[in-house]
Amino acid sequence: MPLWHIYHPPGTYTPQQKKQFVDDITGIYTRVGLPKFYVVAIFHEIEEASFFIGGEPSKASVRVVVEHIARHLEDPAHRVETSELIASRLAPHTTERGLHCEFHVDETPRDLWMTDGIAPPPSHSEAEKLWVQENRPIPY
Rank of each mutant, 00 (worst) to 15 (best):
92 P>D: 01
76 P>C: 04
7 Y>T: 13
56 E>W: 04
97 R>G: 06
119 A>K: 05
17 Q>A: 14
71 R>I: 03
14 T>N: 14
105 V>F: 02
106 D>W: 04
82 T>A: 09
7 Y>M: 14
23 D>H: 10
20 Q>R: 14
81 E>Q: 09
52 F>T: 02
54 G>T: 07
53 I>V: 15
84 E>R: 03
18 K>S: 07
72 H>S: 09
111 D>W: 09
12 T>E: 04
45 E>I: 05
18 K>D: 03
90 L>T: 03
45 E>S: 08
19 K>T: 14
19 K>W: 06
88 S>C: 00
9 P>K: 13
125 S>W: 08
81 E>R: 07
10 P>E: 08
7 Y>H: 15
54 G>I: 03
108 T>P: 02
41 A>Q: 08
46 I>P: 10
28 I>H: 13
80 V>T: 12
118 I>D: 12
94 T>V: 01
110 R>M: 08
84 E>V: 00
35 P>D: 12
120 P>Q: 04
120 P>H: 02
47 E>N: 12
56 E>P: 00
35 P>H: 06
100 H>V: 13
84 E>K: 03
18 K>Q: 15
80 V>G: 02
59 K>V: 05
32 V>K: 10
70 A>V: 00
123 S>L: 15
90 L>G: 02
16 Q>D: 14
121 P>S: 04
98 G>F: 07
10 P>H: 11
103 F>I: 00
84 E>N: 05
8 H>W: 06
64 V>I: 15
79 R>C: 13
108 T>N: 08
68 H>D: 12
108 T>V: 07
81 E>G: 05
49 A>M: 11
56 E>L: 08
94 T>Y: 00
83 S>C: 09
75 D>W: 03
62 V>H: 01
5 H>K: 15
60 A>P: 01
47 E>S: 11
33 G>P: 10
88 S>K: 07
108 T>M: 12
53 I>A: 14
97 R>Q: 14
29 Y>A: 03
62 V>L: 04
91 A>M: 00
92 P>V: 00
46 I>E: 12
5 H>W: 13
115 T>E: 14
93 H>R: 03
24 D>C: 05
42 I>W: 09
118 I>H: 11
48 E>K: 14
38 Y>A: 13
28 I>N: 13
98 G>A: 11
106 D>V: 02
126 E>T: 11
126 E>L: 07
94 T>L: 05
79 R>L: 13
26 T>V: 11
76 P>S: 01
22 V>G: 05
70 A>S: 14
61 S>F: 11
90 L>F: 04
9 P>W: 11
